[in-house]
Design a protein around this nucleic acid. Structure first.
Length: 289
DNA sequence: CTGTCCCTGATT
DNA sequence: AATCAGGGACAG
């Protein structure tokens, strides 16, 4: 599940391969929940555009285009952004045949929704998303997206005092607070669980019962775990791949996430799993209070 | 603030 | 055939 580190790894690897190039051809799959901007309109509007920047806000990517327009991208749960021709066991072979015409339907990968190719002939960009929880939207000059407007400060700059101030006035579990993109932009289920483990705080603890010292420590651990994951290419637990098809390595360093029943790496107590608002949380009942 | 829904593939 | 996974929008 792509969270801040996976999106940032994607951005860093993609930027040098996209920025400065002019789009020669755009192909989209059929209309779906995935397209906030209708696919036909994307095909018309993006053709001939040049890419001037690639930025990240929380878990969103923003491709800066000429004339102040921007392309908003979100990977959702199973999104994969990669360079055409990349190979990975997580990618199907049909992927490079991105012929989206109805007659070619049997030949194409039904999960690749967007393909951009470049005038200079360098390999293009592909956006694949099995479950279509991802998003694509074209923003006009000066146009904003409500999703972006709601984002809080980037989690890489998490401020413990600010987190404490928010925690004091919310009755929700601390884990729920961490997942709130309006509080800290970019934290998802994996890194929330990992940061809470490192800070020694149970995910279920009420936010208002987390002390100031604990909030400072939590902010420190959030930043550490995100930076560490970025450094080793993110987490490839289910679907995530880097733009070159490579897997990240952070899944090998996780202490609690999806380790239910396994021995805690510090004290050997079995890791437990609880549900918080339909979402699973993992913690060590001995190390986390 | 909590519950439901969007979607598809893997698992039971 | 039913259940689970879950980011985020939305309804209640």
């Amino acid at each position: 599940m792509p969270e801040l580190p996976e999106v940032e790894v994607t951005r860093r690897m993609l930027a040098p391969r996209l920025v400065g190039r002019r789009i020669s051809e755009v192909r989209c799959g059929p209309p779906s929940y995935f397209f906030l901007t209708p696919p036909r309109r994307l095909e018309q509007s993006l053709q001939g555009e040049s890419i001037e920047a690639l930025e990240r806000e929380g878990k969103y990517l923003l491709m800066g285009l000429g004339g102040g327009r921007r392309l908003l991208l979100h990977l959702g749960m199973t999104g994969q952004l990669f360079i055409a021709g990349s190979s990975s066991p997580r990618l199907v072979r049909r992927i490079d045949r991105y012929e989206f015409s109805p007659k070619a339907a049997a030949e194409r990968d039904p999960h690749t929704h967007l393909a951009l190719d470049f005038e200079d002939g360098e390999p293009g960009l592909r956006f694949r998303d099995v479950r279509k929880f991802g998003k694509v939207r074209l923003l006009g000059p000066g146009e904003n997206d409500a999703r972006l407007d709601k984002l809080g400060p980037d989690a890489l700059t998490a401020d413990g005092e600010l987190l404490y101030a928010q925690a004091r006035r919310r009755r929700v579990p601390i884990k729920t607070l961490l997942l709130d993109q309006g509080v800290l932009a970019g934290v998802g289920n994996i890194y929330a669980d990992e940061a809470l483990f490192l800070a020694g705080i149970r995910p279920t603890r009420s936010a208002r019962r987390v002390t100031r010292e604990q909030c400072l420590e939590l902010a420190t651990q959030v930043k550490w775990v995100l930076e560490r994951s970025i450094a080793i290419g993110g987490s490839s637990i289910s679907d995530f791949i880097a733009p070159d098809g490579q897997d990240g390595q952070f899944q090998n360093e996780r202490r609690v996430y999806a380790r239910t029943g396994e021995a805690c790496s510090t004290c050997s107590t079995p890791i437990r799993r609880v549900l918080l608002g339909q979402r699973s949380s993992h913690f060590c009942p001995s190390c986390q209070k």
